[in-house]
């Protein structure tokens, strides 16, 4: 039995061993519907050298989300992936309201090293949104989701298979649990892996692949803006059925 003052609970993803996640207990939630957001960040050895910019990008994106009109309807999970972690993936934090996150204080310097368990990261990102989304849905909350997986290279060390990810994505977009789910694979400094990453995206069913270009401060700033705007857009789709749509003179 978890401690009484513990606001987070833990869950397992699918049937796979070693894949878990945490999320705020639903009884602590104060809005009627939520967008689950997952940001997965590659911290493998090759990221060394621009990890500070990557961290700044994460902080900027989260700070921007806090200003969103629907910031109280977002639950954010941030995970890091590299073979330096026991199961390839480590939660920086589980699904939490943005009000409980202070990116400037909570997000410390990234430690880089190890190989790229990209499939594990995708499986964790999508699988946790399915599992936690089901919990929210069972408690009658409206829920949709968006995930960003940011990497600079192709997979070279995963336990999860493409088929496992494919199944999780298929479930996520079926509409049975999540109202909708958008997943974005983002390559940074990944020009040499573009073909592999695009093939991976198509094979498993990730919504979109974006080549963010080189890891310059300017491009990472634009990436942060893209992430925060995508989150706001997905959240608005949840709350209102989408942005205002064109109308004819009569209805």
């Amino acid at each position: 039995m978890p401690r009484l003052n513990d606001s987070m609970e833990f869950g397992k993803i699918g049937g796979a061993n070693g894949f878990g996640f945490s999320g705020i207990r639903t009884e602590h939630l104060g809005a009627t519907e939520y967008t689950l957001v997952t940001i997965a960040i590659d911290v493998t050895g090759s990221v060394g050298g621009f990890e500070a910019e990557l961290l700044r990008c994460l902080k900027t994106a989260v700070d921007a989300c806090k200003k969103s009109p629907r910031s109280d309807n977002l639950l954010l999970r941030v995970i890091l992936f590299s073979t330096i972690y026991a199961n390839g993936v480590e939660e920086l934090h589980g699904f939490k309201p943005l009000a409980d996150i202070d990116p400037q204080k909570d997000y410390k310097q990234l430690r880089t090293g190890g190989g790229t368990p990209l499939r594990d990261a995708c499986y964790s990102a999508i699988g946790a949104m399915n599992a936690y989304g089901k919990k929210l849905s069972d408690d009658d909350f409206g829920v949709n989701a968006i995930a960003f997986i940011i990497t600079d290279g192709d997979d070279n060390a995963s336990a999860a298979t493409e088929n496992m990810i494919k199944q999780e994505i298929a479930q996520a977009i079926s509409g049975e649990i999540l109202e909708s789910m958008v997943s974005v694979l983002i390559g940074i400094n990944a020009a040499s892996y573009k073909n592999e990453l695009e093939e991976f995206q198509l094979n498993v069913g990730i919504t979109q692949y974006i080549d963010a270009g080189d890891a310059t401060a300017g491009k990472l700033a634009r990436l942060a803006e893209f992430v925060s705007r995508s989150i706001a857009s997905q959240s608005q789709a949840m709350g209102t059925g989408g942005p205002s749509q064109n109308i004819s003179a009569t209805i």
Binding site: G239, T240, G241, G242, S244, N246, I247, A249, T250
Partner: peptide, 18 residues
Amino acid sequence: WQARVIMPSIRDWHAKKF
């Protein structure tokens, strides 16, 4: 000047005109 856009969630889907 007529309105050009409306959000689905607040639209009166039973109305014949705005």
